[in-house]
Design a protein around this nucleic acid. Structure first.
Lengths: 131, 131
DNA sequence: CAATTGATGTAATAACATTACATTAAAACG
DNA sequence: CGTTTTAATGTAATGTTATTACATCAATTG
């Protein structure tokens, strides 16, 4: 599915995430958007659901937070497995993709007859500057 | 560090997890242990913190839940990267370890000069029976 | 036995997420 | 067009997960 035109709320949430240095929690996004008319968590969660679906945003499970996708190419969605390094010092999140890991995981799950729907890879630690 | 003798609360939480079919949330554990004297979430979270530290328990970030470690060998801790398949159908969680993935991730993070402290790999999908 | 450290108990609150229901806007279609 | 249908929105309430703060108790150490 191609990414459709974003709605007003989706656009506002997307902008908030795009302009943020690092990941944001849903409630942090809500606070940022209060003076633009946002009033309830659900407005944020609904927008996030769609943005996740379109592949424009990723959820960081280990942080309960969200980041804008930094993939250069058009967000065709499903650019395979996405992995992240997350610096505990500065909060910087780096997204990366690796086909070797993807293939290895694919082989391992196939061996289990496990049907993968979503893969989470998050590496917590310290970046070069914060080490 | 070798695993020390578990305290009363740690033992109760460990037993609850060991005897459970699948992962449990902290509050589910609390409920199971209420008639054994548990009264507050913190009792569970404190025990879990230690059990995680000892490598006896894993946290599933994408579920906000906990499972007993199924590693056969003594829980020497740090048996490298732990990965999980999580079935959305039956809730079954399978723990596995793979040095190829470990080495690949290690190479990728080293290239970033990123110092890894903890790696999360969780694969959501459907197991053979639930596919 | 005093001092320190680790574990525990309890209450309150913070942080994250969803359910339920009413309303409005947009798209599809006769 | 106007009607139907579907998608998006607004709002309140509630549910779930996790932590802070503070008091007490137990074990270890010196």
């Amino acid at each position: 599915m191609a990414t459709p035109q974003l709605t007003k709320n989706q656009t506002m949430v997307m902008d908030a995430l795009s302009h943020s240095e690092g990941p944001m929690s849903a409630y942090t996004i809500l606070d940022k958007l209060r003076d633009q008319g946002f009033r309830a968590p659900l407005q944020v969660y609904r927008a996030l659901d769609k943005l996740l679906e379109y592949g424009l945003v990723h959820r960081l499970e280990s942080l309960n937070a969200f980041v804008a996708c930094t993939c250069p190419h058009e967000h065709e969605q499903d650019h395979g497995v996405t992995a992240f390094t997350i610096c505990e010092g500065c909060g910087q999140v780096t997204e990366f993709h690796d086909t070797a890991i993807e293939q290895r995981l694919s082989a391992l799950t196939r061996a289990q007859n496990f049907k993968t729907e979503k893969t989470t890879i998050e590496i917590r630690g310290h970046c070069q500057s914060c080490a």
